[in-house]
Design a protein around this nucleic acid. Sequence first.
RNA 1: GGUUCCGUAGCUCAGCUGGAUAGAGCAACAGCCUUCUAAGCUGUGGGCCGAGCGUUCGAAUCGCUCCGGAAUCACCA
Length: 617
Amino acid sequence: MSIDNILMQSTAEAVKALYGLDFPAEKVTLQTTKKEFEGNLTVVVFPFLKASRKGPEATGQEIGEYLVANCEAVQSFNVIKGFLNIVIKPSFWASVLGHIAADANYGFKQETPESQLVMIEYSSPNTNKPLHLGHVRNNLLGYSLSEIMKANGYKVVKTNIVNDRGIHICKSMLAWQKWGNGITPEQAGKKGDHLIGDFYVLFDKHYKAEVKEIMENDPEVKAIECEDADKTKEARKAAAEAKSPLMKEAREMLKKWEAGDEEVRSVWRMMNEWVYAGFDATYKRMGVDFDKIYYESDTYLEGKEKVLEGLEKGIMYRREDNSVWADLTADGLDHKLLLRSDGTSVYMTQDIGTAKLRYQDYPIDKMIYVVGNEQNYHFQVLSLLLDKLGFKWGKDLVHFSYGMVELPEGKMKSREGTVVDADDLMDEMVNSALDTILEREAENAAKGKPSEFTNDEKQEIARVVGLGALKYFLLKVDPRKNMMFNPKESIDFNGNTGPFIQYTYARIQSLLRKANPADLTADFSGVEPNEKEVALIQRLSDFPAIISEAGVTYSPALIANYVYELVKEFNQYYHGYTILGEDDAKVRAFRLALSNQVATIARRGIALLGIEVPSRM
RNA sequence: GGUUCCGUAGCUCAGCUGGAUAGAGCAACAGCCUUCUAAGCUGUGGGCCGAGCGUUCGAAUCGCUCCGGAAUCACCA
């Protein structure tokens, strides 16, 4: 039992014994004591005043006295206003540290046969362009969420739905056929996803030129007049777009694709393979993976059946033009189209189909969709529809909605070429980490210190640190918020950053390497830790609560900030206290054990964010 | 206009199931490398927690109303 639980229990007992009030132990408000007051933990006594019929001071006094007399761990107390500050016996803390150190999976819950199965969908790329910064946030959140859920004892299936069909893919294909001269990624010396993305951009360029051409020269288009100049321009543009031969060709290609035209399909398969190879490399480098991948080309027809089933049950209705709709006005939403008048599916229908397939594949208890907040409405509707259609997890599916990543220069727009490519970004981070390493080495060399690392080691450290910086920066922010990604700042290795955590970890590893093996295994029971050490142990003992809370709120940010606080606190301690030079063997062993435990918990914590840790840096 | 989300130091962000005098980092300024890794540490300055009202012993936190910003409201995905 943790010290928190012991105190909550004892306080509840005290309240019962003193005032006859049955106060649930878990409702006792306990907080770590503020620095300026004496004590480790503080009980808020206001809730007991009605039962005690005394003032806050007197009530706190009575409860404090009861605790000192009846609770083993309590040494002394003081009361300030309604706050009962409790001092835990110093020797007690050493045993707490011992317990934490002895548990190889401290903070993590075990998965059991009865564990709920949660499916987490994330990434969901389109196959017409490479992954960008927005995907990076998505991927990191999805992966981290999966790790956090596992740590909370859930069975997790990570899934990815690849949007591999549609007009956008046809655009890339068409551009490649027209202007590509049969070029392959190998010949171009590019990753497949980048090559295809380039052709997508090329299509757009030609298409725009074509539209401009038509607007200026086509007599029919020029004849269009509206009430004002802006509207005229808009209408002419729309007319020109409709007339564009390129777009017509793309649409025709899509029709052929849907009809199963072998020529189109074979090009499509080949180009998609190129893209997947590119994605795989990006995912691998990012450190994310999937247990099951669904392709929209397999699932996009699936939802229709389910919708027709809903139509029979009266959940949906058919309009005169033959289109099928769901009436969600009773739930405060609008009418939603599910099948077009020509009988084809829309996005929502496909998502219903995908849900059906997934449910056939896995006994899902809970579904989490990691998708940007621009789709909040979509998921509100999806949840209602799945529920009405009888999916047991439909009603409380979680749309893990996250905000946009903005840049200091403004919003990312693919059309304006301000998109930050995921691969380029990772390169940039790793390179800048390497620069910093080389800079430091140059400084050391000037002082006569030789380099400690081979070139390979430097590369590996740069990789781990560069990616760690990126991951930590994106995950430490509340996912719901739009965030500012400042490349320059993210490269800064000071402050609340991944590298700072990794650095502290590496220093502790170095410390442990230098220690005498006998010190590492020595018994430290009965050691009375100082204030700083107590604070660190207290923080370490919060770890399980942080993980389970993160599981409830699905927030990697919670864990990120916890680890940072822990590491920062340790750093301050590290600079102020002697560890290896400590004369008392027991104290030395205790301090090494504490250091080791801080490193261990920090590593476990940021592993939940997908961040690696170097043993030297 | 309807719906949802966000407004905390100059900047980037914590804190939000109500608890003591609201915290970090960056930036600025002043210190600390014969000392277990200075990618570090210490100190200084910096705030009507968007505004108002309400709920109560107590509000950055909960409720309502405004103000500001974002997203969304397609027979696109």
